[in-house]
Design a binder for these strands. Structure first.
Length: 530
RNA sequence: GGCCCCGUGGUGUAACGGUUAGCACGCGAGGUUUUCAACCUCGUAGCGCGGGUUCGACUCCCGCCGGGGCUACCA
């Protein structure tokens, strides 16, 4: 019945990945009593549920398979993004947020935003706002929160009290120096064990079992074992009563009904601690998925010097949120086929965190640029104009719309738009190098003829303009570039611009003729003086 | 040092014991062309190393090397 349930709910890869475990599970089921006892004794199993069925539970009493178990598995997925507000949202953090969001949307679940602000010095309102700002720009809307971990302090104290009462945790006056000394005596691969004390000012440690492994069933890594004997009885609350990260996270994830913890690889080593806390609390832990970390172009940590570091930096560089989402999604995750360009809807449809790869990836801005260009070109003109207007801080008026229409298939990023169309909005500054290169002697008679030809063009639109200039070309029997480049320099100031007919049309006849005249005057003046 | 993770071209990935190791970015050449892009075609470059297992390993096992994370009364 279970296999059938699993098959019908989650066909495909997730099931296949789990098939082996399912077999183990079944064997276990049949010799349940004996098997479970020995398992619990030897391994202190604490693990995530897989995609398709429950793993052996944490609790000491075995809950028989029942309908209620099935309904529990149908619960809505709840993921969380839980950044600590240390400043700008880094790209790695953005990817973590994206993967959480995609998984939540894919499963029709909820994403909870929780700010890990128990470190009061780092957690300034400004830092929190930076994170929210970045998430809003990326259009990763959360369903609950932002919740402050700090504000849940009462609850943390409450749980702390009950763990103390049950003996799962104890007060230990040993300082970190004491622990270090203990390790020098007992070896670095042996976990510290303290002595319980009545000292109310002593730090609180969680009791870690002396034998067995704590097992993380990771959706990405598979089974990862951490020997309990090597783990310290770790501090969960300071002497002053304030709680520590690994404790607060476990309590919060449990309380908030998180079903899937999707976070960076740097937390993998924290996971057994959090599992141990949840086991002490008597709650079932969520599933875990630890994403490989992101690195800069040189393989080192991502930083300002080393490629773009923050989300706001990507915004400043003129990237589109949709392109960033697509790119980030591809960093460590693939579709299985050769699809690379995907709308957000497609990402949501296809994404599953269990398909994420295991190796760390390098952030490569060149590919982002290419992808961004794809998204820029595929946008409808109205949308494109609106986005460009917002980026430039301008009104999306007709003139900007016209500018956008001639530049859309050229710009890879929003930052590249303005330099290409600025000539439509302000008098161009002539690039002297371009002038010397293009405005050779033969150029001016051609320019003069073009001026005459264009003055009669009506309506002043690309097709008519092209025809008028083509006749000049035919008459003089010169190559197009000989005529078009001088015009380009005359009206834009440089050698690079959108298509010349479109550029002329967008500029308008009056301004175009004026600028061409001015170029001719400059030449005449130069002759007179030279 | 201890514990843990990872290792296919420059980059992101596919391959799940049998393929000429596929795709995309980049890069190079050519084409198109009014500039620059875009676009089209072709090309370039890879299984970290060494042992096994197997008729056969990128795929499985072991060792090594390399990269990374954690190792706080930080998060």
């Amino acid at each position: 019945m279970w296999i059938i349930t699993a098959l019908s709910r989650e066909p495909g890869r997730a099931f296949l990945n789990s098939a082996k475990s399912a077999a183990v599970y079944f064997v276990g089921l049949h010799i349940r009593g004996l098997w479970l006892n020995s398992w619990m004794a030897s391994e202190r199993v604490s693990s995530a549920r897989s995609n398709t069925f429950s793993r052996p539970p944490l609790v000491e009493t075995w809950a028989p398979i029942s309908m209620s178990d099935d309904s529990e598995r149908d619960e809505k997925v709840r993921v969380r993004f839980a950044p600590s507000p240390t400043g700008l949202l880094h790209i790695g953090g953005a990817r973590t947020a994206l993967y959480n969001w995609l998984q939540a949307r894919h499963d029709g679940g909820a994403m909870i935003l929780r700010i890990e602000d128990t470190d009061r010095e780092r957690s300034t309102p400004d830092n929190v706002e930076q994170i929210l700002d970045a998430l809003r720009w990326l259009e990763l809307e959360w369903d609950e929160g932002p919740k402050s971990q700090y504000e849940r302090g009462d609850r943390h104290v409450e749980v702390l009290g009950s763990l103390l009462a049950s003996g799962a945790a104890y007060r230990d006056p040993a300082t970190s120096q004491d622990v270090k000394a203990w390790k020098d005596r007992h070896g670095a691969d042996r976990g510290y064990r303290g002595e319980a004390s009545d000292d109310p000012g002593a730090a609180v440690r969680l009791r870690v079992p002396d034998d067995g492994d704590t097992i993380v069933q990771d959706l990405i890594r598979g089974e990862v074992r951490f020997p309990n004997a090597a783990a310290d009885d770790f501090v969960i609350a300071r002497g002053d009563g304030s709680v520590l990260y690994n404790f607060a996270v476990a309590v919060d994830d449990a309380d908030m009904g998180i079903t899937d913890v999707i976070r960076g690889d740097d937390h993998l080593s924290n996971t057994p601690k959090q599992l141990l806390v949840m086991e002490a609390m008597g709650v079932e832990p969520p599933r875990y998925a630890h994403l490989p970390l992101l690195h800069g172009p040189d393989g080192k940590k991502l930083s300002k010097r080393n490629g773009a570091a923050s989300v706001q930096e990507l915004r400043e560089r003129g990237y589109l949120p949709a392109a960033v989402r697509n790119y980030l999604a591809l960093l460590g995750w693939g579709t299985g086929d050769d699809t690379t360009v995907m709308s957000t809807e497609q990402l949501i449809e296809r994404f599953d965190v269990s398909d994420v790869g295991r190796s760390s990836a390098i952030f490569d801005e060149q590919k982002l640029r290419w992808l961004n260009g794809r998204f820029m070109r595929e946008m409808a003109l109205d949308e494109y104009t609106a986005v460009v207007a917002r980026h430039l801080g301008r009104e999306p008026d007709e003139r900007l719309r016209a500018a956008c229409s001639i530049v859309q298939d050229k710009a890879q990023t929003l930052n590249e738009v303005w330099p290409l169309v600025a000539f439509l909005f302000e008098e161009p500054v002539t690039d002297e190098k371009a002038w010397r290169k293009v405005m050779k002697d033969g150029a001016f008679p051609l320019l003069e003829e073009a001026h005459a030809a264009l003055s009669g063009v009506d309506p002043f639109e690309p097709g008519q303009i092209e025809r008028a200039l083509a006749s000049v070309l035919a008459e003089r029997d010169v190559k197009p570039g000989k005529l078009y480049q001088p015009i380009r320099v005359a009206i834009t100031g440089g050698t690079v611009s959108p298509g010349i007919f479109e550029s002329l049309a967008a500029l308008g006849r009056e301004a175009a003729l004026r600028r061409m005249r001015r170029a001719l005057d400059r030449d005449r003046k130069a002759r007179r003086n030279g």
